[in-house]
C-alpha cells in the first residue's frame, strides 16, 4: 500500500508541475514524472500478485514514454521556432 501512496504522491507532484509551471519543457518533464509514477504502482502490483504482468506492462509503457517525449519535444521545438520562447502563456492563438 505504501507503494501506491508513493505513486499517488509522485503523480500529484507531476500534476502540480503541469499546472504551475510556464516552461513547456518542465511541463513535459512533469508528464514524464506522472508516467513514472504509474510505473511504480505497476511494479508494486506485480510484486503483490506474484506474477510478472505488471513488469511487462511497464516495459511497454517505457516505449510510450519515449514516443511521448519524441513527439512532445518536436512540438516544443516547433513552437520555439514560431515564437522564440517556450513560455506557455504566449501560445494562445486559439483565443484570437
Amino acid at each position: 500500500m505504501e507503494y501506491i501512496v508513493l505513486s499517488v504522491i509522485i503523480f500529484c507532484i507531476g500534476v502540480a508541475g503541469i499546472l504551475l509551471r510556464r516552461n513547456l519543457i518542465i511541463i513535459l518533464m512533469s508528464v514524464e514524472l506522472m508516467l513514472s509514477a504509474s510505473n511504480i504502482s505497476f511494479v508494486a502490483f506485480s510484486k503483490m500478485h506474484g506474477n510478472l504482468d505488471g513488469q511487462a506492462v511497464v516495459l511497454l509503457l517505457y516505449v510510450l514514454a519515449a514516443c511521448e517525449a519524441a513527439v512532445g519535444l518536436a512540438i516544443i521545438v516547433g513552437l520555439f521556432r514560431l515564437k522564440g520562447s517556450v513560455d506557455i502563456q504566449l501560445f494562445r492563438d486559439l483565443k484570437k
Binding site: 505504501e2 507503494y3 506485480s46 506474484g50 506474477n51 510478472l52
Partner: peptide
C-alpha cells in the same frame, strides 16, 4: 499494508 505474494516467482 504491502504484502508480497507468497511463493515469489516475481
Amino acid at each position: 499494508s504491502f504484502v508480497p505474494a507468497a511463493g515469489g516467482g516475481t
